[in-house]
Design a protein around this nucleic acid. Structure first.
Lengths: 213, 213
DNA sequence: CTGGATCCCTCACGATACTG
DNA sequence: CAGTATCGTGAGGGATCCAG
């Protein structure tokens, strides 16, 4: 294992050593959303072999990126969460996600969307400098994922699940990417039927103002 | 190969697909410094097997990150360079490098420093907002790497090799990381002999102001 | 000499089954 | 639920060889 290191005294090489193994970056992505149990991580990653997931978590723990915590009774279950050092990966992960999102075309058959990946994508697209004078709550449906996005006092709150009293409910599919990247206008997306709204339709423009890749 | 994709419609998964194979991120690092020939890349990466380097370059070319260009005669050699899409990786790569640099302690025996990795590290550490009213030229020696860092009109110019008329020549080793991260003060580094100067010693404080992790 | 291609060996990864 | 055990496969490592 130590033999597989890059052998360069370089920050990027160090990062690649720690994060470069398969699945690791996606594990960090899901943990950036919040602490997770082993089985939750497993679900979010598609088809990770359990031995691989186990090995990656051990490695991340050894590197100080993740801590393993046993919840107090009566739950007594195990959760994995990022350390402060791990949370510092947010900038880099969002930057990578923005870059990768530009190369996404139409989803290939079999490709899935998870709540955590959508939450990270929205965090990456969020423009805080445009949010200072907006207070609004969206409920977003992408494929079969439902999440709540609330902007209040310039800060963003994202969570899985439906919103109570959403100002706008947005139902869409892969078109969300074209919408966020500006490839299609909100008006056009609604016109084409690629986005279905429930609430004030003008708020969709607010959405694409607040979230843009 | 298509079977190894993550199967998620997610920007980060896409980025991990393209960049996640071993060596790829370090290839991008060196190409961010400038176009390179096959053999230059080979040298900069330590001990990449040539078949692996070849396969990575083909993959990056297929993904639109790198272009392969045959120089006009009489050189007739081959250079690899980033496309515009590839250059857009700079933000993400610098962010990853900053994160990784924090975990670098003392270099382990056998770890090397290359000119390209130092140039990327300095780009990552550069604080343009502090550079607006500085014009200064440094010659930096780290281990056996020599490079020139010039700040002029708020912009940074980095190149391998010695500087003509440097305002300050800095000779150091692994201590450069502690200096950039603020773990030791410039005064202390000089005092300890971890940094040798030739020129106005006060400019070392300018250096640590302009470059900080 | 550069810019690779080829071969062989090893080990990490992936699939599946199983356990506290 | 939270992993460990086992085993086959293919990608990576290292050496060598070859064409322009």
């Amino acid at each position: 294992m130590g033999q597989r290191r890059y052998g360069q005294y370089c920050g990027l090489a160090q990062a690649a050593d720690v994060l470069g193994e398969r699945w690791t970056l996606l594990i960090v992505r899901d943990l950036l959303v919040g602490p997770k149990r082993f089985t939750d991580l497993r679900r979010g990653l598609g088809r990770v072999p359990t031995n691989i997931l186990s090995a990656r978590l051990k490695r991340l723990e050894a590197e100080g990126v993740v801590t393993r915590r046993v919840l107090p009774r009566p739950a007594s279950s195990v959760v994995y969460e990022l350390t402060a050092y791990g949370r510092d990966l947010e900038d880099a992960v969002l930057a990578l996600g923005r870059w990768g999102a530009r190369a996404l075309g139409e989803p290939e058959p079999g490709e899935t969307v998870t709540a955590d990946s959508m939450i990270i994508a929205l965090r990456a697209a969020f423009r805080p400098e445009r949010a200072t004078d907006h207070t609004v709550r969206f409920e977003l449906h992408v494929a079969d994922v439902v999440l709540t996005a609330e902007v209040k006092e310039g800060t963003l709150h994202l969570a899985e699940g439906p919103a109570a009293h959403a100002d706008l409910v947005v139902r869409t599919g892969p078109a969300v990417r074209a919408l966020l990247s500006g490839e299609i206008t909100p008006a056009r997306a609604v016109e084409d039927g690629q986005v279905l709204l429930h609430g004030d339709p003008g708020l969709l423009t607010t959405f694409t103002t607040l979230f843009q890749l």
